[in-house]
């Protein structure tokens, strides 16, 4: 049900864009839609992060995934249980760039009557492949937005196309992202327990990203488009003086509609883990609660009434009753 719904939602975007492009609504699908989607993406993203930032984190809750800092002759795990800011930065870099938490993933199986715990790296590997190729593809697309093309982007472009298979050459990241997204989809279909907890919100981004990659690859190799015209359009979008040249293929508008859908959907979906990973309290806090006192930010000011004050207050009464006093 969740899968069918997501599938037809993506098909609907494709069909709407196809009809729109065929009926000549090039300005709507080439200018207005991407502008609106990009604005929703930026404002929605910032708004979401600010909303998160308005919630306090009451306790030090870093995951202690290694030996804590203790006596000087016991070596502590500086990255998996950091006590310093540098350690936290190291942990976050490993987390964000290399998905260390996922690397530590284990699986528990029943093998010939025994419960066996073992490493489970496939998800980590394909997640890494998927995210890195997505990043490279996004960066590579800057060649169509920026003139002159930055040196770094040219470098990514030539490394990505270094197989030099065919003309235009095949990009390695194109093959990898399809492999990655296929794996992430298949695990939700094949593993019964993952399938059971998968919702439309899990399938929709996968189908959407698959459709974006597929239309991109089709545009490059099958339904050829006028790439100079496309760059003229995209550069004019970046300059806020939009011009839609004639003769750009229909597939381009489908691709743009899908990307716009992804951008507009982004701030309201699980894809916000892009910003959320930086705000994970179990990863971005130093485990120094034995060294530094942390006060819960929502503690209200408590009115203390110390014994000294109590005695001052009731001294006469206490004296009359014969109670022992600390100060006479």
């Amino acid at each position: 049900m969740a899968m069918t719904f997501s599938f037809f939602a993506v098909i609907a975007i494709v069909v709407v864009a196809l009809i729109g492009a065929l009926s000549g609504l090039h300005f709507v699908f080439g200018v207005i839609l991407p502008y609106a989607a990009f604005a929703i993406f930026l404002v929605g993203f910032v708004n979401k992060v600010l909303n998160w930032a308005s919630s306090p984190v009451p306790f030090r809750i870093p995951t202690t995934a290694g030996q804590q800092k203790t006596l000087p002759w016991i070596s502590d795990s500086k990255l998996d249980n950091p006590t310093t800011t540098i350690g936290v930065i190291g942990r976050m870099v490993l987390e964000i760039l290399f998905f260390r938490s996922l690397f530590r993933n284990t699986s528990t199986e029943l093998r010939s009557g025994n419960l066996v715990h073992g490493p489970a790296k496939w998800l980590w590997l394909f997640a890494l492949i998927f995210h890195w190729s997505f990043l490279l593809i996004a960066l590579r697309h800057l060649r169509l937005f920026v003139e002159p093309v930055p040196f770094l982007i040219q470098g990514i472009e030539s490394i990505d196309g270094m197989l030099q298979v065919g003309s235009p050459p095949i990009y390695i990241s194109d093959l990898l992202i399809i492999a990655g997204v296929t794996f992430l989809f298949m695990r939700r279909v094949i593993l019964p327990r993952i399938k059971y907890i998968s919702l439309a919100a899990d399938f929709f981004p996968l189908f959407l990203i698959f459709a974006i990659a597929a239309t991109g690859i089709l545009m490059r190799f099958v339904f050829r488009v006028d790439i100079v015209g496309i760059k003229t359009l995209l550069v004019s979008l970046a300059n806020f003086s939009p011009v839609v040249p004639d003769g750009i293929g229909v597939i381009f508008f489908i691709h743009v509609a899908l990307v716009s859908a992804l951008m507009a959907y982004f701030p309201f979906s699980k894809l916000m883990h892009m910003g959320g990973v930086f705000l994970s309290p179990t990863r971005n806090m130093a485990n120094n609660s034995r060294a530094v006192r942390h006060i819960n930010p929502w503690n209200y000011p408590v009115k203390f009434h110390h014994y000294d004050e109590y005695e001052d207050h009731f001294r006469d009464v206490m004296k009359d009753a014969g109670l022992p006093l600390e100060k006479e």
Binding site: L42, V49, S236, N239
Partner: peptide, 23 residues
């Protein structure tokens, strides 16, 4: 962090300011 994010995302916009559009 948010300023860096918005800066990176709008790179094509601000990097093209003041440049003629060579077609």
């Amino acid at each position: 962090g948010l300023i860096i994010f918005v800066g990176l995302m709008t790179f094509p916009i601000w990097s093209s300011i003041g440049k003629a559009e060579p077609k």
